[in-house]
Amino acid sequence: MPAKITKTNADYPQTPYDLIREMFIALGVIGVLVLLCAAIFSTPDVPALTAKQVATQAPQLFIQTALDDLSGQDAISTYGPPYNTNGQAQTLGPISPEAWAGVQIPIMSDEVEVLAPLRRYAVVNPSITPTLNAWSSASSKQQTAWVNNVEKYLDKAKLVNGSLVLPQTKLDYGPVPQILNAYLRLARSGILEDTIDGSHSPMPAVNRTKSLLLLQDQPAGQYAQQLNMSGGQWGIIKETGNYPGAVWLWFYTMLYQIPPYSNSSSADLLVVSTILVVTLILVFLPFIPGLRAIPHALKVYRLIWRNYYQYERLHRRNNT
């Protein structure tokens, strides 16, 4: 039984040792190391992606995002819990913590991301109010038809003096072009995020859930793709630019890339469950026969304690 310990720590010959001195030396060594790295390499800081930037650099992408939000086809409108009940919660057999927790942060994208900010904006620019009323008094079937008509001709649309101009057709666009133009102006002014987030409490906008969910799908995804940071590019462990990222999450990120995780509709729950099981095994390794004997079998310990084993050998030889 190799794992059995016959004598304890204090039964061995001792050498003097200064913990405090060692502590200060280590503090100095790490301090110098960190100082050098910081001075030589600095740190990355790619500015936050803003609605202003998307509306200016990629107006069509921004307009498409707004259209998806209006017609409820965006990723959040169809997400399910914790945002709404319109999507499938992730499940693992009968287990679905997402469904059990239910809607915790209610979000309907059309209202939260587009209409509410424009209504707040209408206080300063009342001319938008009839447009918003025309939209909200229409049936949802009518709203969808308007959005679909705009989407059909979006590729042929132009920006004239910063305003969206759709080609003249027989199709009825309803109030959608005016809504989109007001939304574009709001975004270009740089205050869209604040009109989305900062209205429900006396707090400044420290909770940015809603504005982050506006750009999370296509715009942020496209941006991340160009920085080699999409999910399929192991984006979770990567840092922007040439910097090391969170390599300690390699196992978590790797699971997303391989089957059965990569082609599961409940990939997140499956990955998290696997991580939980693997972590529990590692945490309780001391109690798992077989696994806890691996270090003895690997024999790396002989290298670590080689001086001691040599000492023991000499000691025994001298005694015999």
Binding site: P81, P82, E98, W100, Q216, A224, V272
Partner: peptide, 18 residues
Amino acid sequence: QWIGVQGKDAINSTGLGG
């Protein structure tokens, strides 16, 4: 921003997202 919107799905799947 990106870590937030990417990481939220895993947390949400555990029911702790709220």
